[in-house]
Amino acid sequence: MTYAIRAENLGKQYGSTRALDGVSFTARPGQVLGVLGPNGAGKTTAVRVLATLTRPDRGSAHVGGHDVVRQARQVRKVIGLTGQYAAVDEIITGFDNLLVIGRLLGLSREEARRRATELLEQFGLTDAARRAAGTYSGGMRRKLDLAASLIGRPQVLFLDEPTTGLDPAARDGLWEVIRGLVADGTTVLLTTQYLEEADQLADHIVVFDHGRVIAEGSPYELKTKIGGQVLEVWPVDERDRETVATIISEIAQCPATVEDRRVTVPVVEPGVLRAVVLRLDLADVAVAELALRRPSLDEVFLTLTGHRAAAAARSS
C-alpha cells in the first residue's frame, strides 16, 4: 500500500452548489496532510466522503487501501473522526462516552474500561471523567472527542477543524496532542482555516478554494512557489510608516502593505536590500527591524486565491 489516503477527481453537488468539483490528492502512511481553505471551500465535504459519511457524486477515494463507497465497513475499521461533525453525547459522562465507543468497536467490557481510563489520563481528563460531557469546556470537549476517535487505534485520523473556536492555550494543548499522535505513525488528515495551524502541523498541504485544489506542496514549497521574498520594515517611530511605504514601494516597484507598525512589500530581487537601507538612512528614518523573509502562508493564500483566508471565513 503506497497511499493511506487517495482521492481521485471527487465531485459532490448540493443543489446548485459544487461542494467538491474534481478534487484529487494523496497522503502517504504516517504523513500529516493539511487541507487548507476558507469556509465553504469543500474541506468538510471531502472529510465526510473519506470518512464514509457522504457518497461522492463522481470520482473515487481509497482510505487504507479500501474503497470508501464499496468497502465502507473496512474503511470504518481503520479510521477515526474528530471535528465539526463528530461529537460526544453531552448528557452522559466522559468515561461512559468512551466506554460506549469501545464496546461498539468490539472491545470486551474490561478492555473498553481500560482503554477509556488510559485515554482520559493521556488527555488530562481523569478528574472530569465522571462528569457529564455537557459540563466540559470547549477545549475539554474537543479532547474527549479526539479521545473517542482514538479508541480503535486508527491508522488514519481525520481532524476536521479541530481547533476552531478554541482559545490559544487550548489550541496549543491540542496541537501537542496531535504531534504526539503523528510521532506514533498515525496518518492524519487535518482541515483548517488557519494558515498557522497548517504550517505548524502539516508535512504536505493542499489548498482548497470553491471545491477545487488550487495548489499543493510542502509548506516550504508553497511559500517558494509564489516566488520571491518579502521585505519587512518596522520603523522606530510609527509616524514614519508612510515614508517607509513610499520608499520601499518605489524600490520594489510594487505597492507596500502597512499593518500596525509593520510595512511589507514582496520583492523578487534580493539586491534591493542595500538600496532600501541607503534610502531609509537618507530620509532619516530610524529602523527597529528590517528583514527579508519567505512569505507567510497567509500571503501565499492571498496570492493564490485573490482573497484572504480569514476574511473569507468571516464573511461567510
Binding site: A51, T52, L53, R73, Q74, R76, K77, I79, G80, L81, Q84, Y85, A86, A87, V88, D89, E90, I101, L104, L105, A148, S149, G152
Partner: peptide, 16 residues
Amino acid sequence: TDFKKGVYDRFRSLPI
C-alpha cells in the same frame, strides 16, 4: 438531538 449534535455521524463512522 443525536443527529444535530453529530453523535450519529460518530456512530456511522464506526464499523457497526
